[in-house]
Design a protein around this nucleic acid. Structure first.
Lengths: 335, 335
DNA sequence: CTGAAAGCGCTTACAG
DNA sequence: CTGAAAGCGCTTACAG
């Protein structure tokens, strides 16, 4: 690999001078500058980032924390964040975290080895050491898709509870009373969406019934099938379902179909997230749209300003969500 | 950030000694070792990778080259590769490349700044400088999901052509004669799948008809809709479709439905890739399964061995694909 | 077993 | 305008 020394030698100047022209510094004589540019071009030299990072304060590198089995929504969000990070001149480092304290600790350990300008969480980390470390080292942080009140970190998300209420009220307004839920009580968004479901029912005077709620381990399509199986096995009657994730909804719809039920004919289904595929499935999915693009953009802009201005003013932004009516919901049959 | 110097100071030894115990080197007295371990623990010290990489030969970092709008199949593949890279102790650096020479050149420029142990391509790069650079600097390379004969690089993929033949023959065997294609002639896989389509038709004595082929810009669901629109606008009759990508197939099915046609009732559709969602859609998708997991695993294993053994013996591996029959294909109506 | 020293590739005061 | 020197955080012969 050609280094700054090589360039200096070739163009007959000192490395200091080379460094100056590489970094677009002012005062270098036109002749030397030309010679150096020449040498750079002919050798294809590009400065070694690692070496530079070591001496500079900034590394222009930000870590993105992602759950190991990241779902479709997170993948879209991740792509967006990536792109915006680029535009701001940052590079990104992916950190996958397995669930549980061991996985998280391991993730932290790996992360500690790198000098980071900032970190973006797409995933809630439970162990306190993680944020303590970031805090102690004054590394700006932004949480995307959730908030963590005890942390006073910058976060950007939607009002999960409100959105869930909107989803369930849509079903209620259509005339549904027997509304099931497939979800979980892990992570704040799971808990908040569940809470929204309860709130909407309460507001409509419908009793909350545990039998109508199926908890699943995680949020993939496969678990939508699991959840629906559980519900069916309980032999209860229901005409509607709120799945706290589009993927869960898609799985549930598939299982309904396999058991001979139609959506929305027999059961109305509303999801949450509005992942790309949801507008193309048959039936297309009624759901809550999270503003992915804006979330990606805003989180990067926010992180950037945290990095730029040394005073870390944390903000907590709730972006608006949108309820999207599509084909998977309708009035119940006998209304 | 606490550095090796701090640890040396705290434990009253030289940095050399600290370095030795950090790296599990042999000969250090038990007492000093204990003291150092102690200091490391209490300070939470973790060595700075950048500094270490600079002096060592290996960086344990591998670049993954990804197209800017990476599709669902590539996302799955990427996740798998990521995970396996981890297991082998590598870290990864993502490099998104925009299409076209400018985007590729920019990608190369960014890549040059980092010292890499290897690079994995999930995406074909056209500009010759890219591979020339890698070659000149002796950086091991593996191509995943395609091959590039002029390059004699290690590659791992399926027999695209054969697989396409299998897909189309399935339709032919069901009794279809009027078979359309939605695809493209960009990238080798596009070209090869198109070729497979032609070959299968030829073998069955069906004339190739340009009017039955719709080329689209890229491979997302949206373009499946575009493609189907084009086909419908041509006012031709057809009973089957081969979409060279599952996403394309899903879009096409959706558009068919919007125009009042049913799948597989009116039109049979076969896709390609077997992305996760394809087994859950309604109808579920008949398709060609690429062995994603094996591809991810093998590509990492291969890259690792290229890195480990300095002699770069390139291999070109074609993994077996699987034809998966699901709900989206059936006999044509009047047979 | 252990420390001083050189070096990896860069940048940036500090003198000219 | 420009170069010699120190330093970023590490590792690894080289002497003891």
């Amino acid at each position: 690999m050609v280094s700054i020394k090589d360039i200096a030698e070739i163009s007959g100047v000192s490395v200091s001078t080379v460094s100056r022209v590489i970094n677009g510094k002012d005062c270098v004589s036109p002749e030397k500058r030309a010679k150096i540019m020449q040498a750079v071009k002919s050798t294809g030299y590009v400065p070694n980032r690692a070496a530079r990072d070591m001496v500079l304060k900034q590394t222009f590198k930000v870590a993105i924390i992602i759950p190991e089995g990241f779902n479709m929504f997170q993948r879209q969000l991740f792509s967006d964040i990536e792109r915006h990070l680029h535009q701001f001149g940052y590079r990104s480092s992916l950190y996958f975290s397995a669930v549980g304290p061991v996985g998280e600790a391991d993730c932290l350990r790996r992360l500690k080895g790198e000098r980071l300008d900032g970190v973006i969480f797409l995933h809630e980390i439970a162990i306190p050491e993680f944020h303590e470390f970031l805090d102690k080292n004054n590394i700006p942080t932004v949480l995307v898709t959730f908030e963590k009140e005890e942390l006073e970190a910058t976060s950007i998300h939607i009002s999960e509870g409100e959105a869930a209420v909107a989803a369930v009220e849509h079903l209620i307004n259509l005339g549904h009373r027997d509304i099931c839920l497939i979800g979980s009580n892990k992570y704040s968004f799971g808990i908040q969406r569940l809470q929204g479901y309860k709130d909407a029912l309460a507001k409509a005077g419908i009793a909350y019934d545990e039998a109508r709620v199926a908890f699943v381990e995680t949020y993939g399509v496969q678990y939508g099938i699991e959840g629906m199986k559980k519900l069916m096995d309980r032999n209860i009657r229901f005409t509607a379902l709120f799945a706290i994730t589009d993927e869960l909804a898609l799985g549930a719809i598939r299982h309904l179909k396999d058991r001979g039920f139609s959506v929305p004919g027999d059961v109305s289904v509303v999801g949450f997230d509005d992942i790309e595929i949801s507008s193309y499935t048959i039936p297309s999915l009624t759901t809550i749209r999270q503003p992915v693009t804006e979330m990606g953009q805003t989180s990067v802009a926010l992180l950037h300003s945290l990095i730029a201005s040394k005073n870390h003013m944390n903000v907590n932004i709730a972006l608006p969500f949108t309820f999207v009516k599509r084909e998977s919901t309708a009035r119940p049959r006998n209304t």
